[in-house]
């Protein structure tokens, strides 16, 4: 944050750019809505998410006061989706936090010190990255067992190599810049150099990358839950709802359709926002 404070004009420019980008605003709005759903879930939900009503199962949208209908246990689908947003956000943020903290530390160490330490760490990262992501997550979940924390860990570990590689690359280029050499000659401690000087310089790409990865983590949670390896029943998570909906695809397609829609919209929101963020922070990149 240090860098932005020093340059208020840049902040202004950034905000202006973001606001001009309609798609990014739309993404931000979507993220905002999901966050509101998650935080105020108890106020927004019309029913208790886990209360069953075996007399009112698989109701269609709008029937009997159920906004989006009910699932196979007669639980209110809308309320479950509202509560499910919490899981998606927690996993999304948690997994990226785990992945980025470990990845950033490893990347900083590898990039700054170089030499054999760099070789070992990066070889290890290469090896992790060579696993297809979902397979790594599936295998880890089988080891760890289902549950929220474990999903965060498994998805988080999958995120580590990406962060480590990116940070290492950034550190290498920042290191070459003059001012570090100057600080070095003044005898500043290594840890200080890393955290005060190098890290803030890498912040921009980290933020963009992290935003995109939150989207990826939300999909991963849904995929794991869909395979029965994610969040424990009866906790409502979008992946769980979709998985249950899959068994009633023909008689009650709304379950799978709505839960999937919410995954899609939140991921879309994050991707749009991430795109806008990148464009605003670095006018050169466009992809």
């Amino acid at each position: 944050m240090e860098t932005t404070e020093k340059t208020p004009s840049l902040v202004k420019m950034f905000l202006k750019k973001m606001l001009q980008n309609k798609l990014a605003c739309f993404g931000l709005l979507m993220i905002f809505l999901i966050v509101v759903l998650a935080i105020f879930a108890p106020l927004i939900a019309t029913h208790q998410p886990n209360v069953m009503d075996t007399g009112a199962t698989l109701l269609g949208p709008g029937q009997d006061g159920h906004l989006l209908g009910t699932d196979n246990y007669g639980r209110d689908l809308f309320s479950r989706i509202v509560y499910g947003s919490r899981i998606s956000l927690i996993v999304g943020l948690g997994a990226v936090a785990v992945g980025s903290v470990i990845g950033i530390l490893l990347g900083l160490v590898a990039g700054y010190f170089g030499g054999w330490l760099d070789s070992i760490i990066m070889r290890f990262m290469d090896a992790l990255a060579a696993f297809p992501f979902i397979l790594l997550a599936i295998t880890l979940m089988t080891v760890l067992g289902t549950g929220l924390i474990n999903v965060i860990i498994a998805v988080g570990i999958g995120n580590v190599p990406g962060f480590a590689r990116m940070i290492r690359g950034q550190v290498l280029s920042v290191k070459e810049e003059l001012f570090i050499e100057v600080t070095n000659s003044l005898g500043a401690k290594q840890a200080r150099i890393i955290f005060i000087h190098i890290l803030p310089n890498c912040l921009t790409p980290i933020i963009v990358y992290a935003t995109m990865n939150v989207a990826g983590a939300i999909i991963s949670e849904a995929a794991l839950s869909f395979l029965g390896l994610g969040i424990q029943a009866p906790t409502a998570s979008w992946g769980n709802i979709l998985k249950e909906g899959k068994d009633y695809l023909i008689v009650a397609p709304h379950i799978a359709i709505f839960s999937g829609m919410f995954i899609l919209l939140s991921v879309l929101g994050l991707n749009l926002f991430g795109d806008g963020l990148r464009d605003a922070l670095d006018p050169k990149t466009r992809a």
Binding site: T54, Y73, T146, G228, Q232, P234
Partner: peptide
């Protein structure tokens, strides 16, 4: 899991807190 989920809801009525371990 479906059977466990319903069983869990039923036991809650007598104060037994069942936690489902789906493995």
């Amino acid at each position: 899991v479906a059977a466990a989920t319903i069983f869990q809801a039923q036991m809650e009525k007598i104060g037994i807190n069942v936690s489902i371990k789906s493995v």
